[in-house]
């Protein structure tokens, strides 16, 4: 019976491993929050529209990732999206008049927050808030504007030819 005892242990380990893999797949790769780890501080920014920005998206300055989006919520008082960012502790000299804008990596890529340094000699501290923000570019709005401007031009030229 000794051999069957080893078999049982190996089988048990295999089954547990299989369920651990299933658990990993369900909890880790499906829609769950990405926790930004490490020492650092949080910054806030209010956006009219965040597009498809997701928790865990990078916060970058001049293309260098300095932090992560920590949480996204909606402020019912101001009717704006509130994005909380976790900035790495070593980037502690971000001027407090810097601006944050939501940008897209590539044509169809994920969205991230780009921070451009301002000129102030005061630096952001824990809980600081970006005063100058730029919303995500919504492609539909852009196309609408483009169509509208083309349509406007056309009717203008049509009127001109009438004259």
């Amino acid at each position: 019976m000794q051999q069957s005892r080893t078999t049982e242990i190996v089988t048990g380990a295999f089954v547990l491993f299989g369920f651990a893999a299933l658990f990993f797949l369900v909890t880790q790769i499906t829609n769950k929050e990405f926790t930004a780890g490490g020492a650092g501080y949080s910054l806030l920014a209010n956006f009219e529209n965040i597009g498809s920005l997701k928790v865990g998206a990078p916060v970058s300055m001049s293309g260098v990732t300095v932090g992560r989006v920590e949480s996204i919520s909606y402020d019912m008082q101001q009717y704006k999206a509130v994005v909380s960012m976790h900035i790495d502790a070593k980037y502690n000299r971000i001027p407090d008049d810097s601006d944050a804008s939501i940008m897209t990596a590539g044509l169809l890529g994920g969205q991230y927050i780009g921070v451009t340094a301002g000129g102030s000699d005061q630096y952001f501290k824990e809980g600081g808030k970006f005063a100058i923000v730029q919303d995500a570019l919504v492609l539909e709005n852009l196309i609408n504007q483009l169509v509208a401007s083309f349509a406007g031009k056309k009717s203008d030229s049509a009127e001109e030819t009438k004259k």
């Binding site: 369900v26 499906t30 991230y112």
Partner: peptide
């Protein structure tokens, strides 16, 4: 972060 958040954004429990 993009890798994991993009993955989480598109994979549903139903897919698993």
């Amino acid at each position: 972060g993009t890798f994991w958040s993009q993955m989480r954004g598109s994979v549903e429990v139903d897919d698993v």
